[in-house]
Design a protein around this nucleic acid. Sequence first.
DNA 1: ACCAAAAGCCGCCAAC
DNA 2: AAGTTGGCGGCTTTTG
Length: 333
Amino acid sequence: MRLSAKKQSSPKSVQLAKTRHSVVILVFEQAQMLDVAGPADAFSLMNDIDPLSHYKVTCASVAGGAMRTSNGLTLMTCPISQIKPKSVDTLIVAGAQRSGLLKAIQDIELKSWATKVAKTASRISSVCVGSFALAHWGLLNHRRATSHWMATELLRSNFPMVDVDSSAIFVRDEKFWTAGGVTSGIDMALAMIEQDTTKLLAGQVAGMLVMSSRRLGNQAQYSTILKAQSGRYAALIDWMNDHLSRPLDIVSLAAKANESERSFCRRFIAEVGQSPGQFVEDLRVSAAKRALQGGASAKAAAKLAGFSSPEHLARVFRKRLDMSPVEYRSHHA
DNA sequence: ACCAAAAGCCGCCAAC
DNA sequence: AAGTTGGCGGCTTTTG
């Protein structure tokens, strides 16, 4: 129940022996606001929920001052010159648009600061294309890492020394964490909170953030799902994901979408690139994997993921993964 | 391992 | 004229 922060708390902490954990979010010109705001909210909510937690979240940039983000809002930042590298426990490098990112990673002063931080901090992480900064500074060499799903190929080709995992929401390799696109930064922050405290508390934060389902790092980051989430069936897919245990057949889905079955099928394939049936099965397999990883029984996993029976689940697992649910669990628990 | 019933999916085509 | 829609039949896969 206690933070694993390495630093001593402030000099005044005579009566209250709270452990402080300093989270520094590094932002560049044209930073992606959600990369910053998501983790920041997660950590600060944690402080509200657990009186023993004491995360101190700071936004930093090379020059400090107001920083314009990609959505037009501005962010107040602290110059890195005022942040002692040794005082940082967790560093998070936020993603930014190409121009801002390219400019920032050339900065000598920033590189030397970040390198120092990497030596002493307990966690070095990035969200979205922030991983390019870490990679550029050589911090991800011989490490597993990920990035926004649209950028993983680029990361792989630009940095052959980095072991890029394009199928992950976020990746953890010892103290180096990299999250995929934008909102996966929240999933990563929750995993960090879980590491510092407990699963239960991290789950409570997820609840406060009203996340429909918390995604584990090793869950596949289906680009079809991500693509689909901006399209015509975004709301429907969200609904499907939250109601996996209902019968999600074509008849009911078409009705939900107010379309004829024939047109629904056709449009869905055009939009998502997969037939409705296959898509639903994908969702269910993912949910079952997650449940099994969490230690659920095959029966419980089947029920949770919307398979009509444990036999059904087993059959689909055999077809897709060529293993039984229990085998999967013992392999991935 | 098998089978029958059900569901999924697609080509075709007449009707917008 | 070209494009979209959705009902129908039937082949294939899934399910119990």
